[in-house]
Design a binder for these strands. Structure first.
Length: 112
DNA sequence: CTCGTGACTCCCG
DNA sequence: TCGGGAGCCACGA
């Protein structure tokens, strides 16, 4: 199940690192299901205690609107040491999480 | 089976 | 460079 894989991927994002919606989707098996990731966050982030704040858009910026979660997400990330530039974006080169092969197999094992 | 739903992305003017 | 429009898609109702 795609959703289960997404959850497993999110669970493994380490502190101080972030991933993009599209990346999570790809890791979960479907590169074109970025929007599904959003749904998963809506439905399971709270219930499963997922690190929802570590998911940013392709630009490396927070997608939530100001006054609707933006401040909270940004604060949570900064608390983990992630730095936002003057353009309100993070440096993907340094912050993007690159899962190891072992992480991927763990996910597979978890979902089976 | 069809339809609505997005914290997305890509593409084009 | 920016904004709008059109894909894209799993999942629940």
């Amino acid at each position: 199940m795609f959703t289960a894989r997404v959850i497993e991927v999110l669970r493994r994002i380490p502190r101080g690192k972030i991933v993009t919606y599209g990346r999570v989707a790809a890791l979960a098996g479907n590169p074109c299901a970025a929007r599904q990731v959003v749904r998963v966050l809506h439905v399971y982030s709270k219930k499963e205690g997922l690190p929802w704040h570590r998911v940013l858009n392709r630009e490396g910026a927070v997608s939530l609107e100001r006054g609707h979660g933006y401040e909270e997400q940004r604060a949570l990330l900064e608390r983990e040491g992630i730095v936002f530039g003057v353009d309100d974006r993070v440096d993907l080169e340094n912050c993007l999480w690159m899962p190891a092969r072992s992480d991927l197999s763990e996910i597979e094992a978890e979902v089976l």
